[in-house]
Nucleic acid binder design. Structure first.
Length: 443
DNA sequence: TCTGGGGTCCTAGGACCC
DNA sequence: TCTGGGGTCCTAGGACCC
């Protein structure tokens, strides 16, 4: 029987989506086993919104993206453990999970911090199920993170399977939709149970338009005429529909596409009304962005700066703006980028507003090594200056890597304690896995 | 007093060139 | 003096993702 099932699948792709359950909450729980049965939530930057909820927190009716201040008392009354987000911890836990997964297949795409697509071609039936269960067990055992696995003959169907899996405890963490590929009634039943807005690629806007046309389930979406979909949802939407029909349109992307932009921005902990505060923040974000640029061996051709007031405060007058500027030659040298960003901020900063957020963007990215030369590079002395600049950046990056970010920084970014604009982060857990000093807190 | 951050892709329309 | 079409590149806006 298993052999027949295997033969059936021969030659057609099998996609598995491995998804960490409530990932950020699960990361916090790994180091706090006492929270195993307590509701847990993790907040966005600035402790603004709830961005991860444990199953218990979901049961309390805490919605994804719920503003923390509105739910604070409910969370306190229910004894919910609340954490600020701790990306150093989540990023490190993520790479541990991914490294376990990668031992199960040569074809894997890390899709996000908590999800990976795997090709498991050639497996079917009981063998496929056993393989997926083994993966789950090993991830759990080696990292402490619970995952679920959805399996289908396209990426979109694997996503559907993963959703069904999480909604159905009887699945025991694995749902294999390839079992039903040849049974139209079974496929219909499964897709009928999935609300159209839960389909990968269908967001709020499309869901509203689909509802207006009487389309509420994944099955109804699958059965729409191609030309309507093409017209209202572009080719991207058409790919989604074809994939729901079992026609693969999306490949596994083993190597990440080259990055096109780097954005760094934060909301302020308090409204900013001083130009100097805005300048400090822009300098701080640009310093981070430039460090990321160098970490990835890229140069930026363009610099952008944006500012925004708080749109939620209707009583405040509103203002938002964004400017970009092209550099004479691409660079990764922080002082040059800082100077340019400061000039851009001055171009769009208006007095008399309460600013909520500023940010910087680097674009026109290109690889630092092996790029096409620029006439300006050939000016006398320029090569030596570049060398000195690179050396300076290498030293400061190394010091910051060794002794912590901010060990070497620019006066323009503000001097520590006076950073009034800094975001709130009241409930951050220790960086257990990446910072020795903070590990000591556990003992 | 309080509502995140960082990305990608697609399309339409305008500028420009031949 | 008047008139054409097609290709390419760029940008802004809208949609989506986690």
């Amino acid at each position: 029987m298993a052999l027949i099932a295997s033969l059936k699948n021969a030659g057609s792709p099998v996609f598995a989506l491995v998804d960490c359950n409530n990932f950020y909450c699960s990361c916090e729980r790994v180091f706090r086993p006492d929270l195993a049965r307590r509701p847990v939530v993790v907040l966005s930057n600035n402790d603004g919104c709830v961005i991860a909820r444990s199953a218990e927190a979901k049961a309390l009716g805490i919605a994804m993206g719920a503003p923390y201040f509105k739910f604070r008392s409910r969370l306190e009354r229910s004894g919910t453990a609340v954490f600020s987000s701790n990306y150093a911890l989540y990023g490190d836990m993520s790479s541990r999970v991914m490294s376990v997964l990668s031992s199960y297949t040569p074809d894997m795409e890390i899709y996000s911090i908590d999800e990976a697509f795997l090709r498991l071609d050639g497996l079917a039936g009981r063998r496929l199920d056993a393989h997926a269960q083994a993966m789950r067990r090993q991830v759990r055992q080696w990292t402490g993170i619970p995952v679920s696995v959805g399996i289908g003959i396209t990426k979109t169907l694997a996503k559907v399977a993963s959703r069904v899996c999480k909604a159905t405890p009887a699945c025991d963490g694995v749902f294999d939709m390839t079992r039903y590929r040849d049974s139209a009634p079974a496929m219909d039943r499964i897709l009928d149970s999935v609300p159209v807005e839960d389909v990968w690629g269908v967001g709020r806007r499309h869901a509203a338009r689909l509802a207006a046309r009487g389309v509420f389930s994944a099955r109804q979406l699958r059965d729409l005429p191609d030309d309507w979909v093409r017209r209202h949802m572009t080719v991207t939407g058409l790919h989604t529909v074809l994939e729901l029909r079992g026609i693969p349109c999306l490949e596994l992307e083993a190597a990440p596409a080259p990055r096109r932009t780097i954005v760094s921005s934060r909301s302020f902990g308090h409204p900013v009304e001083e130009r100097s505060d805005a300048h400090e923040a822009v300098a701080d974000y640009m310093t981070r962005a430039a460090a990321k640029l160098r970490r990835e061996s890229l140069l930026a051709q363009s610099v952008g700066v944006f500012v925004r007031t708080n749109a939620f405060r209707q009583e405040d007058s509103q203002y938002a703006n964004f400017v970009t500027d092209t550099l004479e030659r691409p660079t990764d040298y922080t002082p040059h980028l800082l100077r340019r960003a400061a000039a851009l901020l001055d171009r769009i900063y208006r007095e008399g507003f309460r600013y909520k957020k500023v940010g910087v963007m680097l674009s026109g990215l290109e690889p630092k090594f092996g790029r096409q030369g620029n006439l300006l590079d050939c000016l006398p002395g320029e090569a030596e200056k570049d060398k000195a600049r690179d050396a300076l950046m290498q030293v400061s990056d190394a010091l910051n890597a060794r002794y912590g970010r901010g060990t070497v920084r620019y006066a323009a970014g503000g001097a520590g304690e006076e950073r009034r604009w800094h975001m709130r982060q009241a409930f951050r857990s220790p960086r257990y896995t990446t910072t020795w000093e903070e590990l000591a807190v556990v003992g």
